[in-house]
Design a protein around this nucleic acid. Structure first.
Lengths: 152, 152
DNA sequence: TATTGTTATACTCTATAACTATA
DNA sequence: TATAGTTATAGAGTATAACAATA
């Protein structure tokens, strides 16, 4: 990716750097890079870590429930659980209450790795947000939480 | 996409809704929807509009220069210019100064559509940011500009 | 009939490699 | 040799449709 700092135009049209779509996309791309580098030594990507965190909840979740929390669909969740299972981080078993459902739970190894990876993630987030004054970083997170909430 | 509002966990691990990667990704996905809906009647997507804006600069750009401004690579730029040309919005011609380069410029139709589309885009951005108090919206844009700038 | 998990499939976006014409 | 544009191709990521098992 050959991204460059966008330039000012002289024709009265808003600069590219003020386009919300561009800003959100490239902020995400840049964070994804930072995050991927940080997590790579642990053999995880960001989505797998998010899945581990969701599956670590006290109430065991079915694949469909976990997919809902992650904002992915159930076909994507199948592959995600496949990966976690192949790495020995999670296990599926048929729910005794509803045999259509898989209950997915972390293994001991999964819990340990989750703990380590969360520290790595937090450090990566802090590094990424470091160019912002603390107040601005908090305002950013607050704004993003509002904008991503699914209203009504 | 079955996205749901993430839930609080009870095990001390940060909630999904505080994950920076999740927030940036889903904020972008939600804005992309809003933007796509708004631009669809004009027969444009967000990237095509951004390309039109870049190509409307006073100094005519080559494909590679335009690609740099947009943050895409030159192979992607080929298809983008193909699309704009097929819609009658832009034209490539060989640069007389360096015949390896294509100078890409908007047609009259392209300029007119750009003007209309920019109004539509601005309205869509305002609608998307409407849930935020004005100060928070400005803080968000300021923060994103800092985070997306390619430093040193 | 509806739901959950699964598989196969397709579509978009993007990146890489190789070719051409020009410098 | 290096650069700009192009083409072909392959890899993610995601979505849709259809099927099996279960409710």
């Amino acid at each position: 990716m050959t991204s460059e700092t966008p330039q000012t135009t002289a024709n009265g049209i808003d600069q590219l750097s003020t386009r919300l779509g561009y800003l959100l996309k490239h902020a995400h791309l840049r964070y994804a890079e930072t995050s991927a580098e940080a997590l790579a030594p642990l053999g995880l990507n960001g989505r797998e870590l998010a899945a581990l965190a969701v599956l670590a909840e006290d109430v065991p979740l079915s694949q469909l429930e976990a997919a809902g929390r992650l904002g992915v669909d159930r076909t994507t969740m199948v592959a995600l659980v496949d990966t976690l299972e192949a790495k020995g981080l999670a296990e599926r078993r048929r729910s005794p209450l509803d045999r259509r459902k898989n209950v997915v739970q972390l293994t001991e190894q999964g819990r340990t790795l989750l703990n380590d990876a969360e520290h790595v993630r937090l450090a990566a987030e802090r590094r990424f947000l470091a160019p912002l004054p603390e107040e601005e970083a908090e305002a950013l997170l607050r704004a993003l939480r509002i904008l991503t909430a699914i209203e009504s």
